[in-house]
Nucleic acid binder design. Structure first.
Length: 324
DNA sequence: CACCAAGTAAGATGGGCGCT
DNA sequence: AGCGCCCATCTTACTTGGTG
């Protein structure tokens, strides 16, 4: 890579607009719906280049993990998140490595995965902070490396899709690698999901990009009969977006004994004769609201985990139990 | 022990507008 | 023109658990 400042090209940006995420979507029973991807500890250029050039499953050099085989432009995905990570390293010429990504997002999803497959008599077993149980912590970290992929140890496949198409190390920052993208117009296009105003410049028509991603998300859910979608974070935006994508989708608040006033929402919609459930949950970062308030005398991290444990048992397990 | 992060609300800034 | 107000947008502080 050149010493000069690398910036994303229009072509790479457009390809990323069609990138749907990772996991064995055709067999996935839960699609986790994030805000935007991180960069897995690497920099932006190798993440963009890998997504645009090597992500996906190929047969005779032709991409097959795609809505229109042979082409990325109308929706494609990487079937194996761990292979995806290795492809990012490959751009830098680095050898494969044991996978691990930290953070609250993946660890929470790994806990859900283990709680579904390996319920313990000690019912909060998988929902304790790492120092509480070193063995459980090791299992959770190992499970993180098995998420969003085919041929994993998981008995229920999860897949991951994100609303915004540009991977960033930190969601609060804009980066020089994206200086060709108009930050303000991009943000507006992906935040105001009624799509009533047009945001565009010479680099891209950001509103059309967001509309395209909405259409691809609809195609993703309907093509593979996914029974459960779980959004983490940005509840109001995702609610509006999903209501727009799926006419007939009705959201309502639901009960939580752990957190009676929680902002989470549960929605249901009938698609192709199958009931699709949607859970929108507060992002599991204990240093943020709502966990740092409302928690009485329980530590925020413990509080968030207790909530996710309850949601797993009461609302996730009943939907995916037939597939266990 | 220093650093970092898949949010968010409150405070700061600044343009548009009507009034004097 | 100059002032003050409102609203949209941008910037800052905040806090906890995990990592090297």
């Amino acid at each position: 890579m050149d010493k000069m400042q690398w910036t994303i090209s229009q072509e790479q940006y457009q390809t990323l607009v069609s990138y749907m995420g990772c996991g064995n979507f055709p067999n996935a029973k839960i699609v986790f719906f994030g805000i935007e991807e991180g960069t897995g500890g690497y920099a932006i250029p190798e993440n963009v280049i890998a997504r645009a050039e090597t992500f996906g499953q190929f047969d005779n050099g032709s991409i097959v993990s795609s809505f229109t085989p042979g082409s990325r432009e109308d929706g494609y995905w990487e079937p194996n998140a761990q292979l995806g990570g290795q492809k990012v390293r490959q751009v830098l010429g680095l050898p494969p490595v044991e996978p691990f990504t930290g953070g609250f997002f993946n660890s929470t999803i790994a806990r859900i995965s283990l709680a579904l497959e390996r319920p313990q008599p000690d019912s909060n077993h998988w929902f304790r902070l790492y120092p509480e149980d070193k063995n459980a912590a090791a299992d959770i970290k190992r499970r993180i490396g098995q998420l969003y992929r085919k041929d994993s140890e998981c008995r229920i496949d999860f897949a991951l899709t994100d609303w915004r198409p540009l991977p960033r190390p930190n969601m609060g920052k804009w980066y020089p690698e994206y200086s060709t993208v108009n930050k303000s117009l991009f943000n507006k296009a992906f935040d105001n999901v009624d799509f009533k105003r047009v945001h565009q410049d010479e680099f891209s028509h950001y509103t059309n990009d967001a509309i395209k991603r909405a259409r691809l998300l609809h195609q993703l859910i309907t093509s593979f009969s996914i029974p459960l979608i779980i959004g983490l974070g940005k509840i109001p935006v995702k609610r509006k977006l999903l209501e727009k994508i799926f006419p007939g989708l009705q959201f309502e608040s639901f009960q939580s004994a752990v957190f009676p006033n929680h902002p989470g929402l549960l929605g249901k919609v009938q698609l192709n004769g199958q009931m699709v459930h949607v859970l929108l949950l507060p992002f599991p970062d204990p240093s943020r609201d709502p966990w740092k308030s409302n928690n009485g005398d329980v530590r925020p991290g413990v509080f968030a985990l207790q909530y996710y444990q309850e949601i797993t048992n009461r609302y996730i397990k009943p939907v995916v139990e037939p597939y266990l």
